[in-house]
């Protein structure tokens, strides 16, 4: 079933997709969402809105999506299985569709251990794979997981995430294959710093023909400093930051490190664009949304197509 998703339209037209993300604030101030949204207007094709990322309580993804939608942007609702059971998930899917949100990213979610409420109980009634299946069933079959008929199907373009750098490496493409089989139509990857390893993963993806069934968007995150590079290497699970990159950041004078981080990001995008099977870029500028336009322009991805 075709959706009104801008991402889907670009994918269908054979274009190159650019998305970015907007982390909702840790408070009820809608202005912060609008300000971040303003930075991304016209610069990207879709804006992910994170769902309590790293298990830290923030404004709900659905609300922030609604605010962005109201501004005329194309939000991508991120939804994690950590905090909601199948009843709440399906209810939010209906709510999102009712608000005109066309895209969803189905995720397991970071464990609550990493967040601000490690004392909490997680849910994990279903996992990200099953969430993909759930959205597809609701949309294509018009049925809830329980089997009852839905009056007013949620017409949503379905995405998921994949980390090419997590272990065991050998099954990563197979796992993506399962997501595609479940109904996933676009993938945004974990931030890529190790391009060589990513290209090996991409090769496995292409060998399975998955790049033809699902839009692969390569994830990038500009580094603000050598400290951030180091932190990501050491403390972020499943992150692969090569030493050469850290050395390059360290070798740059402190006041120029942010600029160098942007340069590295732009260079990565240019290399990723050339890789067979890559159909888009997902720019995760963490609390640095104002830099996305600069990156998109420097990478030669501007202007964005009208669809």
């Amino acid at each position: 079933m075709k959706t009104n998703s801008k991402i889907e339209k670009i994918w269908d037209s054979g274009g190159f997709i650019v998305t970015s993300e907007c982390g909702p604030p840790r408070g009820a101030d809608a202005e912060i969402v609008r300000k971040k949204g303003e930075y991304l207007r016209g610069v990207v094709d879709g804006v992910n809105v994170t769902d309590n990322q790293t298990s830290v309580v923030r404004m709900s993804s659905l609300s922030a999506c609604a605010i962005l939608k109201g501004m005329g942007l194309e939000p991508i609702l991120q939804m994690v299985c950590r905090d909601r059971n199948r009843i709440a998930l399906q209810s939010d899917i209906l709510g999102a569709a009712a608000l005109g949100i066309n895209n969803m990213l189905c995720l397991s979610g970071d464990h609550q251990k990493f967040g601000d409420h490690p004392q909490g109980k997680n849910v994990y009634d279903i996992d990200s794979m099953q969430l993909i299946q759930t959205v597809r069933q609701m949309r294509d079959e018009g049925k809830f997981l329980g089997g009852d008929e839905i009056k007013g199907k949620p017409v949503i373009f379905i995405g998921a995430a994949e980390n090419p750098f997590a272990d065991p490496f050998e099954i990563r493409a197979a796992r993506l294959g399962k997501k595609v089989k479940s109904g996933c139509q676009f993938i945004q990857t974990q931030c890529i710093y190790n391009l060589e390893k990513f290209s090996r993963w991409m090769q496995m993806v292409c060998d399975r023909g998955l790049h033809e069934k699902c839009a692969i968007l390569a994830g990038v995150t500009p580094m603000k400093s050598a400290g951030m590079a180091n932190y990501m290497k050491k403390n972020v699970p499943g992150m692969d930051v090569p030493d050469a990159l850290i050395e390059r950041m360290k070798g740059t004078p402190k006041e120029k490190q942010a600029e160098e981080g942007i340069n590295i990001c732009v260079e990565s995008i240019q290399q990723l664009r050339e890789m067979p099977g890559v159909r888009g870029i997902h720019i995760m500028a963490i609390e640095w949304e104002e830099k996305v336009a600069e990156i998109v322009k420097a990478a030669g991805l501007f202007p964005r197509p009208e669809v």
Partner: peptide, 17 residues
């Protein structure tokens, strides 16, 4: 995370995130 279709992206060197 009791994932029925894992592993998640946090699996590293055979260990849990």
């Amino acid at each position: 995370k009791s994932l029925m279709n894992g592993p998640c992206g946090g699996s590293s060197g055979g260990k849990c995130e």
